[in-house]
Each structure stands twice: as C-alpha cells, then as structure tokens.
Design a protein around this nucleic acid. Structure first.
Length: 829
DNA sequence: ATACATACC
DNA sequence: TACTGGTATGTAT
C-alpha cells in the first residue's frame, strides 16, 4: 500500500484523535511535539487509550473503504457528477442572500473568566475549570501550555504543574449568562442561545433602527465601581447623560470619544459600532469580555467570532467576493459541523481548506452522503443559514453519570433507579412525557451501548421510566451473564415527547401542523421543507390507514419482585394498565408474517402474536385472540387502544368488496395510491410494506430534483451504471420509486408555508384534479385557494373531533384519525 | 425503530 | 487515581 503514511504514523507514535487539538483560539505557536509526547505518555496503556486506538482503527477503516471507492469511480461518472455539482452551485448561487446581518457572540473562556473575576488572585495564573478528571475550559495562560477544554485535569497538570483547577459552579455561570442574554435581547429579542456562553443574533433590524437613534441612545456608561465587588445595578438600557451624577472613575480606556477619565462612551451608528457597543455593555455589566463575528450568515459569523478572539470582533463584508476570498483559505476544521473525523476523511482526499472543497466537489458528491456533501457544498460557497432559527422544542432529555467500576447487579439496578428519579424530576419541571426510553451503558473498556424501547404511550413518572430502563438493563445483564457487566457509566434518556400538556400522542403534531409559524423558520436558503414534508407524509399514512381495529394479543414478560428500589405501582389509582407495545409498523409486519405463515390470505382470522412485551406498570396481561368480526365492529374502542393497521384495513376491503359495492380486480395502495394488480392480500401487503419503508426513508418526494434530469445515459456508460449499483445512494432510491403517474399538489398552509404532497394522478384533460389529502374526496374546483380552504376545514375538523373526545380514556391517535377519515369517505378500492 | 457514531459546548 | 455530561443529528440496519 501507501508506505509513507503508515511509516509516518509509526514514527509519530500517537493517535491523531488523542493529539492536542490546537484548533482553538489561544493555541498558536505551542510546542506541539512536546505537548503531544506528554499527552501520550500520560495515556499510554490505559483502557481509555486502548479504546481510542480501536476507534481510530475504525475511522481508518472507513477511510480505506472510501479510498477504495474513490479508485473505482469511472471518469465518466465523475464528469457527470461535475455537471450536476455545477448545476447545483448555480442554483445555490442564485439563492445567495447577502441582505442579513448575523452576529455570533462568544464569551471568552467563559467559565474560567467568571472564576477569575470572582477571585482576582487567579488573574495571572494558569487556571482551568473542572476537575482532575475533566476540564471544561482553561484561561489563556493555561492554553499556552496546551491545557484546554475536554482535557482531563491530571494530564493538564503534567503539562502545566502550576495549573490551578477550580471546580465548576454552573449556577453561577447560568446567572452570569442571564445577564449577558439581557444585553443580547436589546439587539435581537429573538436571539438564539447556543449554550451559556454563546449566541446567534440577527442584527438586521437593530441596525436599521439604529440609524435614526439619537446619540443619547448610543451612549453608555462605564461601570460605576471598577475595582471592587459588583452590585448589579440593573439599569435601563441606554444610560442617558442626565441620569448619571456619579463621578465614577474610569480605569478602562475608551478608544473613542472620551479621553481617559470620561465616564461615557458614545457609539456610532455603523454595524461595527453597534456590535462593539454590545460587547462593551456586556463587559460593563459582567466584567467579562466577549468576541463577535459579523457576517451575512450563521456559518460565517461563527467562524468570524473566533478570528479576533479574545475580546475582539471581525466583520466579513457582505459581498460575494469577500466571502469567497475568506472561505478559500479557511481550514475545513474551523467550520461548525466538521469535526475530527470528517476532517480526517477530507484530509485523506487531500482536502484541508475550503478551497479544496470546491475543487473536489464532484468527488465528494460521489463519496459522501447527500446531506453531507450538500453541507460541504454550502460551506465551499460560503453559504449558511441567513436567519436565526426559532428555538426548537427539546427532543430528548437525559442524565448520565460516570463512576468507579460498578459490577454488582443490585447496585447497578439501584443506580439505574436513581438516574430515573433524577430524570423524572427534570422531566416533570418541563411537563413532558416521552414514549422512548433509552438506557446507555459504558463498560470499563469505554465501550458504549445504548438500548431503547418505544412505548405506545408517553410516560413521565419514575416508576414508568424505571420499569423500562430496568428491563433494558436486566436484558443486558442476562446477555452477559455469567460475566457481570463492568460498568463505568450509566445513563437514561427519554425522547419521543408528546404534547406539552399531556395525554394524546399526536395531538400536538396535528395542532402544530395547523398552527402558523410553528414548524418552519429553518430559514436557511435550502433544505427548508424537509420536516414539513415528513409531517405531511406521516400524516398521510395515518389518514389513509386502517379501517378497523384488530387488537393483537400480547404476551407479557413476567414481572419479578424487585428487591431494589421502590415498590412498583399497582392498580390502586384505577389506572389503566399502560402496555408498551410494538410499533405500528412492527405490528403490521408481524401480523403480515403471521398471515403468510397461516396461509390465510382470504381468511379473516388473525391470531395474536407472541412477541414478548414488558409492561411499564408491572402487570402482566394476556390477551385473547380477537376475531376479525369483533375488530370490524368495534373501530377502536376505548378499552382497547391498540393500533389499527394496514392489514386489517386490507382485510376489511377484501371482505366487503369496497365501499362502492363493486368488486375490483386490483387494490389501491393507501400509501402510493397506485393500483396493484392483484387480489392476493399477501402480495398487496408486501407492496404496502415496501411503500411504507420507502416513504419513511424518503420523505421528500418533491425535492428540487436536480438529481437526475440528466439521466439520459448514453449507452457507453455501463461502467457508470455499475458504479451506481454499488453505491448506497438515497437519491437513486428516490427516483426509482418515482413516479410515472404521480404529480405534485401544492398546499398552501395557513401560514403561507408551502407543503408538497404526493398524489395520484387522476388527470383529466383540463389538468390536475385536486384531491383532499384528508378526506380523500376529489374536489370540484381547481382553484388552489378554494382547495386549500377545504383542506383547512378538513384538518380543523379532525382536530376538533380529537379535542372533543379527549376526556375519554386513551384512544389511539391513529384510530381517531382513521375512524374519522373512514367515517367521512375514503374507499381505496 | 434501534444502535452507533459524530459533533458541539 | 483520574478521560465528562447534555443534546442533536447523521448513518446503517
């Protein structure tokens, strides 16, 4: 193979992933070799080191695979990719928006700065915040020794024996952070905090207003007392001249108007002045400095804020030329989102700066996933989000802890319970409930495992969470026995949250679907509509779903007595037993298999299935086999909230020959709406399975498919085709799936967001026929406004119905929608 | 849906 | 002695 590389690695004798990361500010001109030597010597032979070695090898393997793939790319394919890349570049270029002013603000060595402020003796010493095990941040003195965030304290001590390590005090940092945020809010009330010490702001509006501001509004006072303790005088933002009789001393030098001794500083109306003013005010308020980056998008602003750190700012002019210049020499690693591994992979391709990115984009488009290379493409063009995304709702909550080896089962279980208690407490504060519980384990060799289980209903209590976590943990223990699990960390996470104020899963997603301004605001010039479309699709699959409810028999794991932890919750509260069940898809699939097994293609009898499912309440229920007759009669009763599925839907149709009363020779797939020329339910079900898989994998049926309008493959391109076949490319699936007979319908939502949905193509001569995706009825009008109005009504009706029915015991959301849809119309056959 | 990896602070 | 903890997202199955 390629000799020099491995030799070099041997010679250097350390892992790249462990070596000093001197990417950050304050790390220039260090004796890297010496530092790396110390780092290596401190780690060598440890379990951690071994683990890193293993990970390194995995990455290397990935890179080898990539290089191999690269070697197999035919010239032809590269050319084709080049054309495609260029087209996309043009498209992106066209959408370039230079009109916004985005500022990224980042406090300098935040935690360390706070501690130094409150303990001036630290000022001239190398110090770091954290523990002997791990440092959160270090001051600039310490950085000169190679001491930096994410480095364990004991290694830092070797690098810098005089290092002072101060324990973290998050409450304090939070309080300071709040003060800083008050200043942010004055410039952009919608700013987005990224952490305690940094945020993105959109300065566009402030800047415009500022132009007409009087000088008094741009004048700010130096803090009254500079040397000693700091009472936070909560002042009204712009301090006016008249307000300040105090002959405050001014130790700081102002670079502007006032000579030393002036108690004020007047800031100009320019962008730089505005940002400087904001930083000034932060400093006056907190005695801490911040750095800022100013650019037309978030990606660039982020990079810029690092440029003149600490206590500086950098503005990248909003011209294409300036941006391209800036980006050319930018090391890829500086870009947010490109980390150690991506950097290494890119380096292997000879890419270290963004200029290289642009030069090799064709290659990247063939070697990297679509999302990955699109991101790289944007980076290479200096593009990024031009708006500050509204703060998204949280998607998960977790807690985890590292400890000395824990091998005893009882201890592991009781620790698990403690974690669940903590988590339940946190989750309660935000009033959340989640359906997915994930257990995280790390053994003493630093190998990490996660095990998750998704319930049908959201949970929030300690008992419910623990019931799941415990089960997951016990499974792992059992799997390993007779060896014990030798753990060094355990964590519990909850996700798949359901509405803020409880109960009905899905309720919020429907409301969110209708509510203006709730979803979008990704604002980034591209890739915007993904989530929306996903929502649409899943909505679609819900509303096209089952006709009847066939409950599945479930067998539950026996629940043993638990010697650890609290008593399990029983039925005292008259509580319905909440049974975690398999997912809709799992169940549909399981039933399908069963159907095939029993060869009951035309038979309507469906037996319960025997998946072992635990209960969160510690109960064990054995449900009997339900007949399809029952199922047909009772569409989703309150007592049985199990989900409908496509199988029952299909069976229903098969047996009733469709609503129209005509027996048809083909079945219509409720997902893709295409006719499937069969009456064999097994075949049909297989088709639906495939559709569901495709749909969930491929929510964007309507992407700006630049992908392959150039699919006019000439014959000599066999090479190309072979290459394509070997690739794992979602794009390809996409147009394979598509679409001779599909068309796109635009739904203009209440808040003017455009939603695209796939629809079948019942076209007449005049043009597209509009079909309501909710009630499935063909609409007379081809006026989109009228059509949208109708859809709105339909959707609203759904929600109203759901809200009405809310007081009753849990009804599966799917059934709610389905029964509704079914009640109103819908026949697929 | 689940597991694992990557990334950021 | 000692290599985090919290959240999000991408990739693969």
């Amino acid at each position: 193979e390629f000799q020099p590389k491995s030799k070099k690695k041997l010679y250097l004798g350390f892992l790249s992933r462990m070596a000093l990361n001197d990417n950050k500010a304050g790390m220039e001109g260090l004796d890297r070799d010496k530092i790396n030597k110390i780092i290596m010597e401190s780690s060598k032979g440890s379990r951690f080191y071994e683990s890193e070695l293993k990970k390194e090898q995995q990455v290397n393997h990935r890179i080898e695979k990539m290089m191999l793939q690269k070697a197999q790319i035919p010239e032809q394919r590269l050319k084709k990719a080049q054309a495609q890349v260029e087209r996309m570049a043009t498209e992106l270029e066209r959408s370039r928006d230079l009109s916004r002013v985005i500022v990224h603000v980042d406090m300098d060595a935040f935690y360390a700065a706070v501690e130094t402020r409150d303990c001036p003796e630290l000022k001239d010493k190398p110090m770091a915040v954290g523990s002997m095990s791990m440092l959160s941040t270090s001051n600039y003195h310490a950085r000169k020794y190679g001491v930096r965030a994410a480095m364990p304290g004991f290694i830092a001590k070797k690098l810098c024996p005089n290092l002072v390590i101060v324990p973290t005090n998050f409450a304090k940092y939070r309080a300071v952070s709040d003060e800083v945020r008050e200043v942010f809010a004055e410039y952009d009330p919608h700013f987005q905090p990224m952490s305690l010490d940094e945020a993105y702001l959109d300065f566009t509006d402030h800047l415009e207003q500022r132009q007409s501001w009087p000088e008094s509004s741009r004048t700010h006072r130096f803090r009254a007392s500079s040397a000693e303790a700091v009472p936070e005088d909560e002042d009204l933002s712009p301090v006016l001249f008249e307000d300040s009789p105090s002959t405050s001393l001014c130790l700081l030098d102002s670079e502007g108007v006032g000579a030393a001794g002036s108690a004020f500083e007047v800031f100009g109306t320019s962008l730089e002045e505005a940002v400087r003013e904001m930083r000034f005010r932060i400093e006056q308020k907190t005695m801490l400095t911040a750095s800022a980056g100013i650019a037309p998008n978030t990606m660039l602003a982020k990079v810029c804020s690092d440029k003149n750190k600490p206590n500086g700012q950098y503005r990248l002019p909003s011209t294409r030329e300036a941006i391209m210049d800036f980006v050319q020499n930018l090391p890829v690693r500086k870009v947010s989102g490109i980390g150690k591994v991506s950097e290494k992979m890119l380096n292997a391709l000879g890419i270290s700066s963004c200029s290289h990115l642009g030069q090799q984009m064709e290659l990247l488009s063939l070697l990297f996933s679509e999302t990955a290379w699109h991101h790289l493409m944007q980076v290479s063009l200096g593009l990024g989000s031009t708006s500050i995304p509204r703060h998204e709702e949280r998607k998960s909550m977790s807690t985890e802890r590292t400890f000395k080896e824990l091998s005893n089962v009882e201890e592991q279980l009781s620790f698990c319970r403690e974690l669940c208690e903590d988590l339940a407490e946190d989750i309660k504060k935000e009033g959340l409930k989640g359906k997915t519980v994930t257990l995280k384990l790390k053994n003493v060799n630093f190998e990490v495992k996660t095990r998750a289980l998704t319930l049908l209903y959201a949970v929030a209590t300690v008992d419910d969470i623990f019931a799941v976590a415990k089960d997951l943990l016990k499974t792992e223990i059992d799997n390993e026995s007779p060896q014990p699990l030798r753990l060094r960390l355990m964590g519990v996470r909850i996700s798949a949250f359901v509405s803020l104020d409880d109960k009905k899963p899905l309720q919020r997603s429907i409301v969110g679907f209708l509510k203006p301004g709730t979803t979008d605001s990704s604002g980034s010039s591209q890739g915007t509509n993904q989530k929306l479309e996903k929502k649409c699709l899943s909505y679609q699959s819900f509303q096209t779903g089952p006709l009847a409810c066939l409950p599945l028999a479930q067998k539950c794991q026996r629940q043993e007595e638990v010697p650890w932890g609290k008593k399990q919750r029983g039925f005292e509260g008259g509580q319905t037993s909440e049974e975690p069940k398999q997912s809709f898809f799992q169940r549909a699939h399981a039933k399908r298999l069963q159907l095939q097994a029993t060869n009951a293609s035309t038979q309507q009898e469906v037996h319960g299935e025997n998946g072992s499912v635990m209960t969160s309440t510690g109960t064990c229920a054995e449900k009997g086999v339900e007949s399809s007759k029952e199922a047909h009669e009772s569409d989703s009763t309150a007592s049985d909230p199990s989900e409908n599925d496509l199988v029952s839907h299909v069976e229903a149709h098969a047996s009733t020959s469709g609503c129209g009363g005509t027996v048809s020779e083909s079945l219509t797939c409720p997902v893709c709406f295409r006719q499937v020329e069969t009456t064999d339910l097994n075949i049909f079900n297989t088709h639906i399975d495939q559709c569901l898989t495709d749909a969930s994998r491929n929510p964007n049926q309507c992407t700006v498919s630049d992908s392959d309008s150039d699919m006019d493959l000439e014959k000599g391109q066999k090479e190309c085709e072979e290459f394509e076949l070997n690739r794992v490319d979602p794009q390809e699936d996409q147009h394979n799936l598509e679409n001779d007979s599909l068309q796109t319908i635009l739904l203009i939502n209440g808040d003017n967001r455009t939603v695209t949905m796939r629809q079948p193509q019942p076209c007449n001569e005049k043009g597209p026929v509009l079909i309501c995706p909710v009630c499935q009825l063909t609409q007379d009008s081809d006026d989109l406004t009228i059509f949208n109005h109708h859809v709105d009504l339909c959707l609203n009706q759904e929600v109203l119905h759901e809200l009405e029915g809310q007081t009753s015991s849990p009804i599966n959301p799917t059934s709610v929608i389905n029964s509704k849809a079914i009640g109103e119309c819908v026949c697929f056959i």
